[in-house]
Computed example of a mutant assay.
Amino acid sequence: MSHSIPVATTWVNGQLADHLPVTDRGLAYGDGLFETLRASQGRLPLLELHLKRLQRGCDVLRIPFRRQLIEEELGSAANAIGDGVVKLTLTRGSGQRGYAMPADAQPTRVIAVFPLPEYPADRRDGVQLYCCATRLSDQPLLAGIKHLNRLEQVLARSEWQDPAFAEGLVCDQQGRVVEGTMSNLFARVAGEWVTPDLSRCGVQGVMRDYLLARMLERGQRFTVGALTLDALHQADQVFCCNSLIGVWPVIRLGDRAWQVGSETRLLQSLAEQVYL
C-alpha cells in the first residue's frame, strides 16, 4: 500500500514544515537522537523496539521523552505513507552558544517520510562486504543509542563507491568486529550465532533485538560478545540486518566466501514476516 504524498514530507513539532532555527542544538552539536522506522500498510511493526531505544537515548542525553505524543505523530506519518520509511529526529531544541544544556530547552521533533529504498533484489541471496579502515571510537556512555553524531559512519561509507559492495564492515580500535555502517552483524561460529557486544561502541539495532528475541523463543544458541576478524573468517554463515533491509546473507568479505545456510534463511524469513 502506498499513499499519494510528496516524495519527502516533513513535520516539525507536529506542523508541516521544512526548516529549523539555526540555534537548534541538533545542528550545532548533534545533540539529539534519531530513529528510522519501516512502515507497512500504515503500521509500524517494530515501533515498540524503536521507542525503547529512543527512551534509552533520552535517558542518557537527558532529553525529555514525550512518548505518547511521539507515538501518535509516528502513527500519523505511517498512515500517511502506507508503505515506506518514517524517520524521527529528536533534538534538545534551541539554545545559546556553548555546550551547557539549556535549563529551559524545548525538544524539537522532526518527522519525515520517504519511499522505501530500492535495493537490488539479488541482495536477498547474498551480499559482499567491504572491510573499512575507519575504526569506531570507544565511548560507553553513548554506545548502543542512535545519537545524531554519525561522522564515523559517514567516513566509513565514503571508503567505497563500487556497487559490488552492499555494506561495509566496521571494527573498533582493537580490531574487533562491531557492525556494518548501517547494520548489525551475526556470524555462526561452532554451531551458535555470535553478534558483537555493543557496550563500548556501535548501535543496538531494533532488528538485532527482534532476532535475538526470536532465537531465545526457539531455544537457539547465541552469544553476545567479542567477535574477532579471525573468528568471523572461521564462521560458516554470516548475515547483516537492520529494520529496513531485514536480513542480507553475507557471501564474501575479501578472499573469504560463505554459502547461504538454512539457519540464515530461517532468520531472514522471520524478519520478512514482520512486515506482512
Results as ranks from 00 to 15, higher is better:
147 H>N: 11
209 D>M: 13
200 R>D: 04
204 Q>H: 07
154 V>C: 13
141 L>K: 09
178 V>Q: 10
185 L>W: 07
185 L>G: 08
130 Y>V: 04
186 F>A: 06
165 F>V: 04
133 A>K: 15
131 C>E: 12
170 V>W: 08
211 L>M: 07
158 S>D: 02
128 Q>F: 00
125 D>S: 14
205 G>C: 12
183 S>M: 06
162 D>A: 11
159 E>D: 08
175 G>L: 02
193 W>D: 03
168 G>M: 07
143 A>T: 09
208 R>C: 12
182 M>P: 00
147 H>T: 08
126 G>C: 04
153 Q>R: 09
188 R>E: 08
162 D>E: 13
163 P>S: 03
127 V>Q: 03
198 L>N: 02
135 R>E: 13
210 Y>V: 05
151 L>N: 12
182 M>E: 01
185 L>F: 08
198 L>E: 01
190 A>F: 00
162 D>S: 12
190 A>T: 07
160 W>V: 01
194 V>C: 14
128 Q>T: 08
149 N>F: 12
174 Q>A: 14
129 L>P: 02
162 D>M: 11
203 V>K: 04
164 A>F: 09
189 V>S: 09
167 E>L: 01
142 L>D: 04
146 K>R: 11
178 V>T: 09
151 L>W: 12
157 R>C: 08
125 D>V: 00
126 G>S: 04
151 L>T: 15
128 Q>M: 00
128 Q>P: 00
192 E>A: 13
171 C>M: 14
127 V>N: 01
165 F>L: 02
197 D>K: 05
201 C>V: 02
135 R>M: 13
147 H>K: 02
155 L>I: 15
155 L>Q: 14
198 L>D: 01
206 V>S: 04
175 G>Q: 07
141 L>G: 01
183 S>N: 06
175 G>P: 06
148 L>W: 05
